[in-house]
Amino acid sequence: VKKMAKAIMADPNKADEVYKKWADKGYTLTQMSNFLKSKTAGKYDRVYNGYVIHLD
């Protein structure tokens, strides 16, 4: 998940494709939050927020 999150950060155009894969795998927002937690607070906030919007 972190590898794909980094791919989104490097190229935001990949976001919809990645979010669809995550949704197809049934990842919940709680799971995504836990996967994307980082020592650098807020590092993956943009990715998480994008997934929230995708699921909505």
Rank of each mutant, 00 (worst) to 15 (best):
M32G: 02
I53Q: 14
N13D: 12
G50L: 06
N13H: 11
Y48T: 03
H54K: 02
V1S: 03
L55H: 02
H54S: 05
A23W: 07
I8G: 02
P12L: 07
K37G: 07
T30W: 11
Y51W: 04
R46L: 14
K3N: 10
K6S: 09
A15H: 05
E17S: 11
Y19Q: 00
Y44M: 01
K39L: 08
V52C: 09
G26W: 03
Y51P: 03
D45R: 08
V52T: 05
K25L: 15
V1R: 04
A15I: 04
K20W: 05
D16M: 11
K25F: 13
M4W: 09
H54C: 05
A7K: 11
D16K: 11
W22G: 00
V18Y: 09
P12E: 08
S38V: 07
K21C: 15
D45V: 07
K14D: 03
N34V: 13
G26R: 05
K6H: 10
A23H: 09
L36M: 01
I53V: 13
K37S: 12
K21M: 15
S33H: 12
W22Q: 00
N34E: 15
D16T: 14
D11T: 04
A15Y: 03
V52N: 03
M4G: 08
D56G: 14
A7F: 07
A23N: 06
K43A: 07
K6G: 08
D16W: 11
V47K: 01
G42E: 06
K39W: 08
Y19W: 03
D56H: 14
T30P: 09
A10P: 03
K14E: 06
N34H: 14
H54E: 03
K25R: 13
H54P: 02
A5F: 04
K2G: 02
D11G: 02
H54M: 07
Y48W: 06
V18Q: 04
Y51I: 03
T28I: 04
L36G: 03
I53E: 14
L36D: 02
A7G: 05
Q31D: 13
A5Q: 03
K2E: 06
W22L: 01
Y44S: 01
K25T: 11
V1N: 03
M9Y: 04
A5M: 04
S38L: 06
W22T: 01
V1E: 02
V18W: 03
G26S: 05
K25H: 11
T40H: 14
K37I: 09
T40Y: 11
L55C: 07
Y27M: 04
D16R: 10
I8K: 03
N13P: 05
K3Y: 08
V1M: 06
K20L: 06
M9Q: 06
E17N: 08
M9H: 05
A5N: 02
D16E: 14
S38R: 04
P12H: 07
V18R: 01
L36Q: 01
Y27N: 00
K39P: 09
Y19N: 00
E17T: 09
V47P: 01
A7Y: 09
A41G: 09
D11L: 04
K25Q: 14
Y48I: 13
A23L: 07
I8S: 02
D56S: 15
Y44N: 00
T30E: 15
D11C: 12
P12V: 07
A7I: 13
G42I: 04
K43V: 07
P12C: 08
Y44T: 00
H54W: 15
D24E: 15
Y48R: 00
I8E: 01
V52S: 10
N49C: 14
T40K: 12
K39G: 12
T28G: 05
D16C: 13
G42F: 06
L36F: 04
A23G: 04
G26H: 05
F35G: 02
L36K: 00
A5T: 03
G50R: 02
N13T: 15
Y51Q: 01
K21N: 13
F35T: 02
A5K: 03
T40R: 10
T40C: 10
I53M: 13
I53F: 10
Q31C: 08
A7W: 10
S38G: 07
S38W: 06
G50I: 06
K14M: 14
F35S: 02
E17K: 08
F35N: 03
H54R: 03
A7P: 02
Q31N: 05
M4S: 08
H54A: 07
A10H: 10
Q31V: 07
D16H: 14
Y19T: 01
D16A: 14
Q31F: 07
N49W: 15
K43L: 11
N34K: 13
Y19D: 00
Y44K: 02
G26M: 04
A10W: 09
R46W: 15
H54Q: 03
P12M: 07
V18I: 15
T28D: 07
L55F: 04
K6F: 07
K6V: 07
I53K: 15
K2F: 04
